[in-house]
Amino acid sequence: MSLKNILENFSDFRRDAEVGGHHDYEHRWAMSIDLNLCIGCNACSTACYAENNLGIVGKEKFEKGQAMHWLRVERYWDETDGEFPEQGASFVPMMCQQCGAATCEPVCPVAATYHTPDGLNAQVYNRCIGSRYCSNNCPFRVRYFNFWSYYEQSWPEPLNQQLNPDLSVRDKGVMEKCTFCVQRIRTAKDTAQREKRQLQDQDFVTACAQACPTNAITFGDTLDPNSKVSKAWRKHQVERGPYTHKKPKENAELRGYRVFEELNVDPSIMYLERVRETEV
């Protein structure tokens, strides 16, 4: 295709989120996180440390906000609480939302963060030069920068023997974040290919979804209409693509929503609203 061709027929080539994004997606990995079930226990977060070789930063660096928790469970008190928080606290697991129109991607000067044909925001560690523009641009604050060589302190022998060989240990100067356990995706795809079959729903799940004691996290492929996660998204009438005020849910009582949807970043994680008892 020539430049002339592109310029003259730009609308043919321009495919944005409205018409399914820049890619012909093979898969679109997504999650549904039910805040009615999430108890805020941190099992998911620790499972993520175990699966993804996340470094330990220690108290001083934690204080500076340098913790590498790809998945953190936030706890919020209600602003309306009286003398006591009578309705408990609010917990939300927060990790990379694998946005379909990610704000982190276009700002990377070296294309270290890019969109995969699976709909993931991938981070290429070898390309990353540590400009941190992506982190600056992420509305969810879920990108974590290696300010130091955390590996030097994190795994004194023999703790290093626990490191997952399916993915690397990152060194200083590199940005990292939740990958939806891309190594598990890769392994599952390879296995399916070797067995000459299609990838099936629940062939694998991410480490966080696997560990969750209440099964609050559902992971899967939204391009597979029969996957658990597709069914959850359909049930709660949450759709991919841009946010529009013109198309409210048919049933306003459904619980599905995406955090910061109004920013139009097309997150891949649907949260289900926390349920509050009114009778008490």
Partner: peptide, 15 residues
């Protein structure tokens, strides 16, 4: 921050 400051991370629905 100890509260959501109106950012709507955790939304709620009645039981």
């Amino acid at each position: 921050s100890e509260t959501q400051l109106g950012r709507g991370f955790v939304r709620t629905v009645s039981a």
